[in-house]
Nucleic acid binder design. Structure first.
Lengths: 349, 349
DNA sequence: CTGAAAGCGCTTACAG
DNA sequence: CTGAAAGCGCTTACAG
């Protein structure tokens, strides 16, 4: 009873029913008599039969596959994909599997022609777009996706008038929590290192939250304490050197990513400043490294499980025609050693 | 000239040729007259047409897709996927794309029923199995895969009589390099922390290389300096405590993974031992963390790019019917600060 | 160089 | 509850 590549017809012959009945039985159709169904499923199992996905997909026009498009936005020197995305991939795959979807992974450049192919070729029923990038740059592609009725979810902030739905982290709240923590520790000259505007809404939001916290506390938000930096240790290091050269005193530092914070801490140490003695430092991301540097970095954590599950749930909702709205999830401050003594919590708002 | 879901027939109508000619032209068949081909491709582009992969796959019996099966073999507490695998995923996707293959990712348990479905359902033309695990445990599944003529490549060592082909790292050579480095620094009481036999051929090979180096150098390979440990910081920490309690002096330490080494270094520091002053430490993996701990960890690096590219090349070779042999790639010692002064290289062999 | 035709293996109205 | 039939959109011998 071994058949090389069994089809539903082989099973039909063996079971003495029509091929249509086999198809119904394998899909657990209530139309099929229970005993018939059991017999057919038994034979299928014995033959190691699995429905040919190409045939089923051709017929139903569904692939039951999600395409995960990762943009590797790096500056060439630090060619590593953001670790948070790897953690999300893990959760995305699990969440998708639970809903009966496969995950196709593709690494892309923002400049690639990824946008149309996946759904048009029926390789995927929908897309998840993952990667920090300049939304303005690929705005045109998002428009094209929307025009082609492609289902997609963007990981990231809610951007006004942006086509499609997104799911992201409330970066503004994260920046607010970070700055508030520093304020609660008595810090008043709080520097900001990170991108502020151009090309990165998430970093802009982190800055906005930081600025709001300072404003609410009546603390000056001094432009001379702000240094732009992209996401790398090297640039965090350089930014602190720049700050020190400016001669502006500071006792707190909020970096828009952990990598920047880690580079910044190294620069502080190299210049005779202690952390948290002289300067309290907060990062953003909670990458695995954050817990292992010395001192361990206080940072704002994005929960990869909530992110992965949320992205998949929303995309599948879109695919299945349910109404889906863009959403933000709340980040969480993880207190470690880089800020010093336990903060007194300030009332929010 | 907008058609919702254009098919090759739509293009044929527009171009005034048969659907068969469209199919040929899109596949760049030399049979089609160049001008005709150009015209057809122009129309296809304008319509945003992409070949329906389900239909093409059904017809050709190829999916042009590789399934990447990741086994998450963790002890529950450290639920993180090995970072090396994430780096490989990156390289696997790129290598596959270059050869015209998509990558389907799935996280599995060794106990799951992953083994038969992917190829039988025509979702994938072949499998890459990635994950440290007990080969003996899933031997039965490998047999079933082979019996079903599934094409697959296993990431890992070459195991005698194991069905299928594998591609891995020469862990024996890595262990040999690590121990030789310690010997060249004058260390003679070199401890080993890691799994040795049960369920992990790669760790066993690392141990074997270590033992061979000691043997060749005429240094005793003392069982009392060996502590078994699975891959986690916690267990590395515990293993050093165990070693210290045994009261056996040691001046070198080879850990079978970086995580173990990092935990071990912390335990040494907590017990008043300096690294590399009192004890020189070598790890294995070169995870990103390794360069950032204090002191920076000397370790054995597996090149994720060679690994990813090799796995894909071999699998595609198998899929396309070329003869493929199992292979090992050479790991490389990365010297940092955890061993002390520059080693004098010993002649190999 | 091009076309007519078969067929890949399913799912699902339609009929009974 | 079951079967006969159509058709999803391609690729590829076969014929010219």
């Amino acid at each position: 009873m071994k058949i090389e590549n069994p089809t539903s017809r082989d099973i039909a012959d063996l079971a003495g029913v029509s091929q249509a009945t086999v198809s119904r039985a394998l899909r657990n159709s209530p139309q099929v008599r229970p005993e018939t169904r059991a017999r057919i499923q038994g034979i299928a199992k014995e033959l190691n039969y699995f429905v040919n996905r190409n045939a089923a997909g051709l017929r139903t026009q569904h692939s039951n596959t999600i395409a995960l498009l990762l943009f590797d936005e790096t500056d060439g020197t630090d060619k590593k994909m953001n670790l948070f995305f790897w953690a999300m991939l893990d959760n995305i795959t699990r969440a998708a599997a639970k809903l009966g979807y496969d995950v196709l992974v593709s690494l892309q450049q923002l400049t690639d022609d990824w946008h149309m192919e996946y759904q048009a070729s029926h390789r995927a029923d929908g897309l998840i777009l993952l990667g920090y990038g300049d939304y303005a740059e690929y705005r045109e592609k998002l428009d094209a996706l929307a025009a082609a009725h492609t289902r997609f979810i963007i990981w990231g902030p809610i951007v006004k008038d942006q086509p499609g739905r997104s799911f992201g982290c409330d970066n503004e709240s994260g920046g607010y929590q970070a700055a508030n923590h520093l304020l609660a520790l008595g810090r008043r000259r709080i520097a900001y290192i990170g991108r502020k505007r151009r090309g990165s809404p998430e970093h802009a939001a982190r800055y906005d939250g930081y600025a709001r916290a300072l404003l609410e506390a009546g603390v000056e938000c001094d432009d001379k304490l702000r240094v732009p930096a992209d996401n790398s240790e090297r640039l965090g290091y350089a930014a602190v050197k720049e700050l020190l050269e400016r001669g502006q005193p500071f006792d707190g530092l909020f970096a828009s990513t952990d990598l920047i914070a880690i580079g910044a801490m190294r620069a502080l140490a190299d210049n005779g400043k202690t952390v948290p003695g002289d300067v309290s430092v907060v990062g953003f991301d909670d990458m695995p490294l954050a817990a292992h540097v010395t001192p361990a970095l206080t940072t704002v954590q994005q929960n990869a499980e909530i992110a992965g599950t949320g992205l998949v749930a929303n995309l599948v909702g879109l695919i299945e025609g349910r109404p889906i709205e863009s959403r933000l999830m709340a980040p969480k401050l993880i207190v470690r050693d880089s800020c010093g003594g336990k903060a007194r919590l300030m009332p929010a708002g």
